Computed example of a mutant assay.
Amino acid sequence: AVLAASLRTHPDDNAGAYVGLAALAAARHDFAGALRDGERARRLDPYGGAVFGVIGDALVELGRYAAAGATFQKMVDIAPGLSSYARISYLRELHGDVAGAVLAMRAARQVAGTAQDTSWAAYQLGELAWNAGDVVGAASRYREAEQLDAVWIPPRAGMAKVAWARGHVRTAIARYREVVALYPLPEYVVALGDLLWTTGDRASAREEYGLAHAEAALFRANGVNVDLELALFDADHGHAGPALRAARIEWGRRHSILVADAYAWALHAAGHDAQAVGYERRALVLGTRSALFHYHLGMIELALGRRAAGIRDLRAALAINPHFSILGVPAARSALARAGGSA
């Protein structure tokens, strides 16, 4: 309402309001709307760094990666700093250049102007380490982030998953309970539920899963699109029909590699592996070093009877990150054992 009022008052020289509208649209996962408002901002301010940031973000989520790369480079040229370097880092990670992603995020951390910004960059470095299977490096960065900003929750969640990776399941559950009590983000709620499920506490796990679905309903009621997240959650937890419906709707909106992966996994859950394999290969088209993508592809290939390919991709998943998923890791190891491969 404030941004709309600002545009009514200053319709011709108000790029900032359009940037704000683009950011709000992105927060609702309306990336086409975010791109539209970002382009309106660019017409008013063709040299604004924030303008290129919201446009590039939308292009990434819409699967237009070459255009996103060019846009982020313009942002770096106009406004080098934490925001632009971080976006370059993410794009490099998507293209499988993990070392380059780390360099860009280190550059972002070096120019961070506040303790909170430095904490954010440290946490992102922790996530890059985690996704590469470096538990020690991830723990170091998460601890650094927590020390810099003790009230920010994501580093605490990072340390919870580190505890799980180190085999300290009870500690991980306790830490996730603390995190969820402070900030019940669906990602954290589901992680807690999955950990409880693996310990055999199915009743408590179902309570957490129910909370995650309730939160998704609240997001939808407030205009936030959560079809991608629901597709993955439902496919992982035995709800193939809803997963496939959500994934199909999201694929109709945008063709990013994340949506291709979710669509493939939902198709697999529904037993449509011949269709699923093409979408999962599309998810890997940029060369992303994603253990989750390779796990999904390996499981789909095994379901199609392609034993050698399935074993190869499941091994690749565990080599990239042997702790990529609370439920996926044991499933991958079991599938490899059944197929006669070894982790």
Results as ranks from 00 to 15, higher is better:
T114D: 08
A101C: 13
R106N: 13
A107W: 06
E93W: 01
T118R: 09
Y123V: 05
A115C: 07
D97F: 04
A115G: 06
A99T: 15
Q124G: 03
Y90P: 00
R109Y: 12
A121I: 08
R109M: 11
G96N: 12
A107Y: 03
H95R: 15
A107R: 14
A107H: 13
Q124W: 05
M105K: 04
V98A: 10
A121G: 09
D117H: 06
L94N: 00
Y90A: 01
G113R: 12
A115I: 04
Q124E: 11
G96D: 05
D117A: 07
D97K: 05
D117Q: 11
G113M: 08
R92Y: 01
A99G: 15
A122V: 13
G96Q: 08
G96Y: 07
A121E: 10
A115Y: 01
V102D: 08
D97P: 08
A99Y: 12
L103I: 13
V111K: 06
Y123H: 12
V111W: 07
M105E: 10
R109I: 08
V98I: 15
D97Y: 07
L103Q: 15
Y90I: 01
Y90K: 03
V98S: 05
G113P: 04
G96A: 13
Q110A: 14
A121C: 12
S119M: 06
A115E: 11
Y90V: 03
L91Y: 05
Q110E: 13
V102M: 13
G96W: 10
H95T: 11
Y90D: 03
A101N: 07
L103K: 10
G100H: 06
A121T: 09
R92F: 02
Q116K: 12
E93D: 09
A121K: 07
L94M: 05
Q110Y: 09
T118P: 02
V102N: 09
A107M: 14
V102F: 12
L91F: 02
V98M: 09
A107F: 06
H95A: 15
E93T: 00
A108F: 02
V102H: 07
L94D: 00
M105R: 04
R109T: 07
A107V: 09
Y123D: 11
S119V: 03
V98T: 13
W120Y: 13
G100K: 01
A112C: 10
A101H: 03
A121N: 09
Q124R: 11
